[in-house]
Nucleic acid binder design. Sequence first.
DNA 1: ATTATTGTATTAAGTGCTTAATACAATAAT
DNA 2: ATTATTGTATTAAGCACTTAATACAATAAT
Lengths: 130, 130
Amino acid sequence: MSWDLKSDRPIYAQLIEQLELKICSGVYALGSKLPSVRDLAEEAAVNPNTMQRALVRLEEDGLLYTQRTSGRFITEDANMVIQIKDKIAREQIREFLEKMINLGFSRKDILSNITKILEEMRENEYDSRV
Amino acid sequence: MSWDLKSDRPIYAQLIEQLELKICSGVYALGSKLPSVRDLAEEAAVNPNTMQRALVRLEEDGLLYTQRTSGRFITEDANMVIQIKDKIAREQIREFLEKMINLGFSRKDILSNITKILEEMRENEYDSRV
DNA sequence: ATTATTGTATTAAGTGCTTAATACAATAAT
DNA sequence: ATTATTGTATTAAGCACTTAATACAATAAT
């Protein structure tokens, strides 16, 4: 998973989400050192200030910690990561379900459409994690 | 369903989505007259210019049409609405699934978590459409 | 005929996001 | 000791979005 930034939402907000994803999914391991702000910014093709803004936020949430001049590190607290992962998942599911229900889909419709698209994703381009 | 606008995304984009929802879900019936730009803007607590911007977009997509000084109307083309509804649903499902898969959830995990939250929504505050 | 309502357009101001260009202090690396 | 790298801060500029305040033309309502 690389950096996927769209123009219809603030970049810093998208960076926060994608950094959370990278941490929760293990792209950055517990306790490991993050690339520097400047490197991350270059990697994501973003201004260092913008990346910094996202990192500060993750730090406030307890997912990262800073050692003054040696860099930033992922928390060693596995529970913290699990909780964030769970929080993100619940938010995603709720938002999604509310939209689908507002569109007029029934419980059955929702589930059947999901399995249908899951099949498509399994068959086609997507990856094998499903 | 009322107007629910958050500050982390352009308002006009959210208006487009929610107008699409209102049309697809039947809040505004096929062929019926929309409230005026000014009234819609007041209803959504938004500047008329911003509402106008959203309406113009829906018109470009064929969901609305304008009669110069008597107002705007929902299309009478039922297929158009069905297509839009289907398009929105597919987008929502894909986006959702990609996020969940990136988070590391398996197909089984996703489905079981959805049914779990659907149960919660059915029991608790949400409505009876599920 | 007059009035009110429709969509539409314009201009100016304010705000937040983003970038670019710097700079500084602390410390790891040499 | 010197140098490079770290996070951090500041300032100025540009941009899109939003609002407010108007205004205009067309036509429905009176």
